[in-house]
Protein backbone atom coordinates (compact mmCIF):
# COMPACT_ATOMS: atom_id res chain seq x y z
CA UNK A 1 0.00 0.00 0.00
CA UNK A 2 1.52 3.31 -1.04
CA UNK A 3 1.69 6.20 1.35
CA UNK A 4 -1.04 8.78 0.90
CA UNK A 5 -0.02 12.33 0.06
CA UNK A 6 -2.00 15.42 1.00
CA UNK A 7 -3.62 17.86 -1.43
CA UNK A 8 -4.16 21.28 0.18
CA UNK A 9 -7.03 23.67 -0.56
CA UNK A 10 -6.55 26.47 1.94
CA UNK A 11 -5.51 27.50 5.42
CA UNK A 12 -7.97 28.31 8.20
CA UNK A 13 -7.93 29.20 11.86
CA UNK A 14 -8.10 26.07 13.93
CA UNK A 15 -11.06 26.96 16.11
CA UNK A 16 -12.59 23.58 15.42
CA UNK A 17 -11.46 20.59 13.48
CA UNK A 18 -13.24 20.27 10.19
CA UNK A 19 -14.29 17.20 8.25
CA UNK A 20 -16.48 17.55 5.18
CA UNK A 21 -17.91 14.95 2.85
CA UNK A 22 -17.25 16.68 -0.45
CA UNK A 23 -15.88 15.67 -3.85
CA UNK A 24 -12.30 16.91 -4.02
CA UNK A 25 -9.35 16.78 -6.39
CA UNK A 26 -8.43 13.40 -7.94
CA UNK A 27 -11.49 11.51 -6.72
CA UNK A 28 -11.28 12.41 -3.05
CA UNK A 29 -14.59 12.22 -1.19
CA UNK A 30 -13.58 13.70 2.13
CA UNK A 31 -11.78 16.84 3.21
CA UNK A 32 -10.30 17.27 6.68
CA UNK A 33 -7.73 19.36 8.49
CA UNK A 34 -4.05 18.93 9.34
CA UNK A 35 -2.96 21.37 12.04
CA UNK A 36 0.17 22.99 13.30
CA UNK A 37 -0.77 24.78 16.51
CA UNK A 38 -3.56 27.22 15.64
CA UNK A 39 -3.19 26.94 11.86
CA UNK A 40 -5.03 24.25 9.93
CA UNK A 41 -4.68 23.20 6.32
CA UNK A 42 -7.82 21.83 4.64
CA UNK A 43 -6.65 18.71 2.80
CA UNK A 44 -7.74 15.53 1.09
CA UNK A 45 -5.78 12.34 0.45
CA UNK A 46 -4.16 12.02 -2.96
CA UNK A 47 -1.85 9.46 -4.56
CA UNK A 48 0.44 11.91 -6.34
CA UNK A 49 2.29 15.10 -5.43
CA UNK A 50 1.84 16.37 -8.98
CA UNK A 51 -1.91 16.28 -9.70
CA UNK A 52 -3.07 16.68 -13.27
CA UNK A 53 -4.32 20.16 -14.07
CA UNK A 54 -7.72 19.58 -15.67
CA UNK A 55 -10.78 21.81 -15.65
CA UNK A 56 -12.55 19.19 -13.51
CA UNK A 57 -9.71 19.16 -10.97
CA UNK A 58 -9.65 22.96 -10.75
CA UNK A 59 -13.42 22.99 -10.27
CA UNK A 60 -13.08 20.36 -7.53
CA UNK A 61 -10.51 22.58 -5.78
CA UNK A 62 -13.07 25.40 -5.84
CA UNK A 63 -15.90 23.09 -4.75
CA UNK A 64 -14.06 22.14 -1.57
CA UNK A 65 -13.29 25.77 -0.72
CA UNK A 66 -16.93 26.70 -1.36
CA UNK A 67 -17.96 23.89 1.01
CA UNK A 68 -15.64 25.33 3.66
CA UNK A 69 -17.20 28.77 3.19
CA UNK A 70 -20.72 27.32 3.33
CA UNK A 71 -19.90 25.36 6.46
CA UNK A 72 -19.21 28.64 8.22
CA UNK A 73 -19.75 31.75 6.13
CA UNK A 74 -17.75 33.92 8.49
CA UNK A 75 -14.66 31.74 8.42
CA UNK A 76 -11.50 33.26 6.95
CA UNK A 77 -9.79 31.03 4.39
CA UNK A 78 -6.37 31.69 2.87
CA UNK A 79 -6.73 29.89 -0.48
CA UNK A 80 -3.99 27.75 -1.98
CA UNK A 81 -3.16 27.86 -5.65
CA UNK A 82 -3.95 24.72 -7.67
CA UNK A 83 -1.67 21.71 -7.32
CA UNK A 84 -0.18 22.25 -3.86
CA UNK A 85 0.15 18.61 -2.84
CA UNK A 86 2.47 17.68 0.04
CA UNK A 87 4.36 14.46 0.56
CA UNK A 88 2.94 13.91 4.02
CA UNK A 89 1.71 15.62 7.17
CA UNK A 90 5.27 16.21 8.33
CA UNK A 91 6.27 18.34 5.35
CA UNK A 92 2.93 20.18 5.48
CA UNK A 93 3.32 20.99 9.16
CA UNK A 94 6.89 22.12 8.52
CA UNK A 95 5.62 24.65 5.97
CA UNK A 96 2.77 25.79 8.23
CA UNK A 97 5.32 26.34 10.95
CA UNK A 98 7.81 28.13 8.72
CA UNK A 99 5.14 30.43 7.26
CA UNK A 100 3.11 30.83 10.43
CA UNK A 101 3.70 34.56 10.87
CA UNK A 102 2.68 35.41 7.32
CA UNK A 103 -0.32 33.05 7.43
CA UNK A 104 -1.50 34.35 10.76
CA UNK A 105 -1.28 38.02 9.80
CA UNK A 106 -3.04 37.24 6.52
CA UNK A 107 -5.87 35.44 8.35
CA UNK A 108 -6.19 38.47 10.63
CA UNK A 109 -6.32 40.87 7.68
CA UNK A 110 -9.06 38.95 5.86
CA UNK A 111 -11.12 37.93 8.90
CA UNK A 112 -14.84 38.53 8.40
CA UNK A 113 -14.60 39.23 4.68
CA UNK A 114 -15.22 37.55 1.34
CA UNK A 115 -14.16 38.40 -2.20
CA UNK A 116 -16.82 39.37 -4.72
CA UNK A 117 -16.15 39.79 -8.43
CA UNK A 118 -17.79 42.43 -10.60
CA UNK A 119 -17.50 42.61 -14.37
CA UNK A 120 -19.38 45.19 -16.41
CA UNK A 121 -19.60 44.64 -20.15
CA UNK A 122 -20.63 47.05 -22.89
CA UNK A 123 -23.25 45.85 -25.38
CA UNK A 124 -21.89 43.74 -28.23
CA UNK A 125 -23.21 46.12 -30.91
CA UNK A 126 -22.01 49.64 -31.67
CA UNK A 127 -24.11 51.35 -29.01
CA UNK A 128 -22.14 54.29 -27.66
CA UNK A 129 -21.40 54.01 -23.96
CA UNK A 130 -19.83 56.69 -21.83
CA UNK A 131 -17.37 54.29 -20.25
CA UNK A 132 -15.74 56.91 -18.05
CA UNK A 133 -19.11 57.85 -16.55
CA UNK A 134 -20.05 54.21 -15.98
CA UNK A 135 -16.73 53.50 -14.36
CA UNK A 136 -16.90 56.38 -11.94
CA UNK A 137 -20.55 55.71 -11.03
CA UNK A 138 -20.10 51.98 -10.42
CA UNK A 139 -16.74 52.11 -8.66
CA UNK A 140 -17.85 54.93 -6.36
CA UNK A 141 -20.89 52.93 -5.22
CA UNK A 142 -18.98 49.71 -4.67
CA UNK A 143 -15.83 51.20 -3.14
CA UNK A 144 -17.96 52.70 -0.39
CA UNK A 145 -19.23 49.21 0.52
CA UNK A 146 -15.90 47.37 0.49
CA UNK A 147 -12.70 47.31 2.53
CA UNK A 148 -10.40 46.44 -0.37
CA UNK A 149 -10.41 46.28 -4.16
CA UNK A 150 -8.18 45.13 -6.97
CA UNK A 151 -8.20 46.01 -10.62
CA UNK A 152 -8.14 42.98 -12.89
CA UNK A 153 -7.22 42.92 -16.54
CA UNK A 154 -9.82 44.24 -19.00
CA UNK A 155 -9.00 41.63 -21.60
CA UNK A 156 -11.52 42.77 -24.20
CA UNK A 157 -12.65 46.24 -25.24
CA UNK A 158 -16.18 45.34 -24.18
CA UNK A 159 -15.06 44.96 -20.60
CA UNK A 160 -15.58 48.32 -18.92
CA UNK A 161 -14.96 47.15 -15.36
CA UNK A 162 -13.25 44.02 -14.05
CA UNK A 163 -12.66 44.30 -10.33
CA UNK A 164 -12.61 42.19 -7.20
CA UNK A 165 -13.87 43.61 -3.93
CA UNK A 166 -13.14 42.54 -0.39
CA UNK A 167 -16.46 42.87 1.43
CA UNK A 168 -17.29 42.43 5.10
CA UNK A 169 -20.06 39.99 5.96
CA UNK A 170 -22.15 42.74 7.54
CA UNK A 171 -22.08 44.68 4.25
CA UNK A 172 -22.93 41.84 1.90
CA UNK A 173 -26.66 42.54 1.69
CA UNK A 174 -25.94 46.19 0.92
CA UNK A 175 -23.42 45.13 -1.75
CA UNK A 176 -26.02 42.78 -3.32
CA UNK A 177 -28.50 45.68 -3.37
CA UNK A 178 -25.94 48.01 -4.94
CA UNK A 179 -25.40 45.51 -7.75
CA UNK A 180 -29.17 45.51 -8.37
CA UNK A 181 -29.17 49.32 -8.49
CA UNK A 182 -26.27 49.36 -10.92
CA UNK A 183 -28.01 46.78 -13.09
CA UNK A 184 -31.17 48.88 -13.12
CA UNK A 185 -29.36 52.17 -13.76
CA UNK A 186 -27.40 50.81 -16.72
CA UNK A 187 -29.95 48.87 -18.69
CA UNK A 188 -27.76 48.48 -21.78
CA UNK A 189 -24.84 46.93 -19.91
CA UNK A 190 -24.24 43.37 -18.72
CA UNK A 191 -23.23 43.01 -15.07
CA UNK A 192 -21.56 39.76 -13.98
CA UNK A 193 -21.54 39.38 -10.24
CA UNK A 194 -19.53 36.43 -8.89
CA UNK A 195 -18.60 34.88 -5.57
CA UNK A 196 -18.39 34.61 -2.72
CA UNK A 197 -14.74 33.62 -3.19
CA UNK A 198 -11.98 33.05 -0.71
CA UNK A 199 -9.91 36.25 -1.04
CA UNK A 200 -7.80 35.03 -3.97
CA UNK A 201 -7.13 38.52 -5.25
CA UNK A 202 -6.16 39.87 -1.84
CA UNK A 203 -3.65 37.26 -0.77
CA UNK A 204 -0.24 36.75 -2.35
CA UNK A 205 2.08 34.35 -0.53
CA UNK A 206 5.05 32.52 -1.98
CA UNK A 207 6.91 29.98 0.14
CA UNK A 208 10.27 28.83 -1.13
CA UNK A 209 13.05 26.62 0.15
CA UNK A 210 16.76 27.30 0.30
CA UNK A 211 19.77 25.32 1.29
CA UNK A 212 21.75 27.51 3.63
CA UNK A 213 25.14 26.39 2.32
CA UNK A 214 24.19 27.71 -1.13
CA UNK A 215 24.33 31.26 0.17
CA UNK A 216 21.04 31.53 2.03
CA UNK A 217 20.10 34.84 3.57
Amino acid sequence: MSESHLYTYGIIDDNESLALNVDGVAGATRAYTVSYRSLSAVVSDIETTDPERTDAAVEAHNTVLQAVLEHDATRAVVPMSFGMAFKNARTLKGVLRGARRALRSTLTEIAGTVELGVKVLAPGDDTAVDTAAVRSDVTARLSALSVGETENDCFTDRLIINKSYLVEHDTRDAFDAAIDEIDAAHDDLTVRYTGPWPPYNFVDIHIGAEQAQQGGR
Partner: peptide, 12 residues
Protein backbone atom coordinates in the same frame (compact mmCIF):
# COMPACT_ATOMS: atom_id res chain seq x y z
CA UNK B 1 16.62 22.40 3.15
CA UNK B 2 17.51 24.68 5.99
CA UNK B 3 15.57 27.84 5.31
CA UNK B 4 12.02 28.52 4.18
CA UNK B 5 11.62 31.86 2.47
CA UNK B 6 8.21 33.44 2.84
CA UNK B 7 7.10 36.43 0.81
CA UNK B 8 3.65 37.72 1.55
CA UNK B 9 1.61 40.60 0.25
CA UNK B 10 -1.77 41.36 1.74
CA UNK B 11 -4.03 43.80 -0.05
CA UNK B 12 -6.73 44.95 2.31
Amino acid sequence: IEILTVEARVVA
